[in-house]
Design a binder for these strands. Structure first.
Lengths: 211, 211
DNA sequence: CGAACCATGTAACTCGTTACATGATTCG
DNA sequence: CGAATCATGTAACGAGTTACATGGTTCG
C-alpha cells in the first residue's frame, strides 16, 4: 500500500509522468524507498481507476508521448487519511544480502566480500554527495522552514545520517578484514592499497562541496 | 532467494526447528532480516526438496512434536557458492512508511507523527540494549576473533551503529517537531514533557548495562 | 556505431503479509 | 479463566523482480 501513497506524495507539488516518477524513486525519494518502473505503472493504473489521479497525454516531437498524472482532490483526501492510519512499525529492516554473506565469512570468500564492501562504499558516497548538496541548497536553516518542508527535511537528514553511518561501518569492516589475513606478503601489499583507498575516500566525503 | 540462504546460515551451527528459526529472525538475525513463520516453513519445504537440509521429528511430552532441520553437505556447498554470486547492490533501502508520512507533515497530523516517532524510539532502544549486550559478552575483542566470527561481528555492529544513528535521528526529529508549534500555552507544557522524555531516554541508552 | 536516454507497457514469477486453523501447557 | 508460549501448517492476496517488447534521439 505504501508505494501508492509515496507516488501520490510525489504528485502533490508537480504533475509527473511514470518515467519522471521512476526517476524520482532513483533520486530524491530513493534514499528510503525504491520502486521499479513496472511497479509504478501498475500503481498508476490503479490510482486512475480510483480517480485519485487524472491522466493527460502530452505529445512531443521526436520522443514518445508522455502521460502526465496529477493528484485529484479525492486522492489528496485519501492521502491525508492514510497518514493517520497506524502502520506496522518495522524498525530499520536493512535487508541487505551482504550481511548474510558476512555471516559466512571465510578464507575462500574474504577477498570477494571486501570487493563488495568497497563497491557499496563507493555507491553510498556518490549518493551522499548528492543528498548533502540538496540539504545545503534547500534546507540550510531547518527551523525557519514551513511545516511541510520540515517533514521533508527530516526524511532527508534521516537518509543522510544513515548513509554516513553506513560509510563509517564500511571503513571499520574493511579495516578489520584487512587485518584478517596479514602475514602473506603479496596480500599485505594489496591491503595497503585498500587502506589507502579508504583514507582517500574519507577526505572526499568530509568536504563534498569541493567535487 | 536470500531468505533461503539466511536460513541455511542459521543452520550451520545448530539443528533447529521452524519455530526456533522464526525466533532467531525476531532476535539475533532480526536486526537486518525479518521473516514470518509462514515464509520460513515454505522455504524449509523447498530446502528439503533440494536435499539441502534433512528433517527429523522429535517427540515431546505435553507439547507438539518439533521437526528439526540440519544442513547437509550439499546444502553447505550451495551456501558457499551463493556467497560468491554477485547480488544486486541495494543500498540502505529503509522502506519505512513513516518517512513517506513525514513528507506529508501538517498541523493535522503532527501530533500523530510525534507519537509514532516516540514509539519507534522506544522499540529501537529495547533492541539496541539487547544487541549491545551480545556485543559486550561475545564480541568484546573483535581482532582476536576467528575469521567466521569476525563476519558475524561486523553484521552485529552494522546493526548497532545503524540503530544508534536511528535513535539520534528520532531525537533530532522530535526536537524539531516540538519547536514547530510552540506559542500555544497548552502545547508548550506538553512539549516540555516530550523533551524531558527524550533526555531521560538518552541517559538510559548511553549506559545499557545498568538496566 | 554502439551506448545511454526517453517513454511506455505486459507476463510470469518469487517474496512477503494477513488471515485462518488446531490444540496442549504454563503463568499470573 | 484468559493470555502467552510452544509448534505446525494452508490459502489468498499484495508487493517486488526479471524478462520481454518497442522504437526514436542524442552523445561520445
Amino acid at each position: 500500500m505504501a508505494l501508492r501513497y509515496a507516488i501520490m506524495t510525489a504528485l502533490i507539488e508537480d504533475e509527473l509522468s511514470g518515467y519522471d516518477l521512476a526517476g524520482a524513486f532513483d533520486k530524491s525519494l530513493g534514499f528510503f524507498w525504491h520502486a521499479s518502473h513496472q511497479q509504478i505503472y501498475r500503481e498508476l493504473g490503479k490510482l486512475s481507476e480510483f480517480a485519485w489521479v487524472t491522466r493527460r497525454t502530452e505529445s512531443q516531437k521526436g520522443r514518445p508521448d508522455r502521460i502526465l498524472y496529477a493528484l485529484t482532490d479525492l486522492g489528496r483526501e485519501a492521502l491525508d487519511q492514510w497518514v493517520l492510519t497506524k502502520d506496522r512499525m518495522r524498525l530499520q529492516e536493512t535487508k541487505d544480502e551482504l550481511y548474510i554473506k558476512l555471516y559466512n565469512l571465510s578464507e575462500t570468500n574474504i577477498e570477494y566480500l571486501r570487493t563488495r564492501l568497497l563497491e557499496r562504499r563507493d555507491a553510498m558516497m556518490k549518493r551522499l554527495y548528492l543528498y548533502e548538496r540538496i540539504r545545503r541548497r534547500h534546507y540550510d536553516d531547518p527551523k525557519s522552514l514551513p511545516l511541510r518542508r520540515k517533514g521533508v527535511y527530516l526524511a532527508l537528514i534521516g537518509g543522510i545520517s544513515g548513509g554516513k553511518q553506513y560509510l563509517s561501518w564500511c571503513d571499520e569492516a574493511l579495516e578489520l578484514l584487512a587485518d584478517a589475513d596479514a602475514g602473506d606478503d603479496a596480500e599485505s601489499v594489496r591491503e595497503k592499497d585498500v587502506k589507502q583507498q579508504v583514507e582517500d575516500a574519507k577526505v572526499t566525503v568530509s568536504s563534498p562541496d569541493t567535487a
